[in-house]
């Protein structure tokens, strides 16, 4: 009788919050492993190898002359912001209990997600290397 509504098999499969929470849980783990590589390497490279005191316009512009760095930064942006905002959603669920405030908080978080993803993706893709890059201060 498996597959019938109310059978043991179906009861086990009915998940709280539907499939979304399962996929969200899985995404946090997959993106976590990805970020363990690309976010930690980004911090190691920019802060430990290059050094924040040496970073300026020409360093970033020079980096983005290579389209592979743009792709790297785009992936880092998408994974890190989605992972972080997904974590913020879980924190809102934990601390904001009134339904109205919860909807408001999640709406603000979602708008911020779209806005910052758009800003970041726009500048990574659309930034044009100035022709006088070598002579810049």
């Amino acid at each position: 009788m498996s597959g019938q509504p109310g059978s043991a098999r179906n009861r086990r499969r009915r998940l709280p919050g539907g499939k979304f929470e399962l996929y969200s849980w899985l995404f946090m783990r997959v993106s976590g492993v990805v970020l363990l590589g690309i976010a930690v390497f980004h911090l190691f490279w920019m802060h430990m190898v290059i050094g924040v005191e040496n970073i300026d316009f020409s360093v970033v512009a020079g980096r983005w002359e290579n389209p592979l760095w743009r792709l790297y930064d785009l992936l880092l942006l998408a994974f890190a912001l989605t992972h972080g905002m997904s974590g913020l959603r879980l924190a809102i669920d934990d601390y904001v209990h009134r339904p109205g405030w919860r909807v408001a908080a999640k709406s603000v978080a979602f708008l911020a997600y779209v806005l910052f993803l758009g800003m970041g993706a726009y500048i990574i893709v659309a930034f044009q290397t100035p022709p006088d890059l070598a002579s810049l201060p």
């Binding site: 300026d56 316009f57 020409s58 970033v60 512009a61 942006l77 890190a80 912001l81 972080g84 911020a112 910052f116 800003m119 970041g120 726009y122 500048i123 990574i124 659309a126 930034f127 100035p130 810049l136 201060p137």
Partner: peptide, 19 residues
Amino acid sequence: LLLHIFDIFLIGFGAETFN
């Protein structure tokens, strides 16, 4: 991360502003 996205976005305003 939000601060960092914002500051990198400002690179579009040119070298002097960004630096």
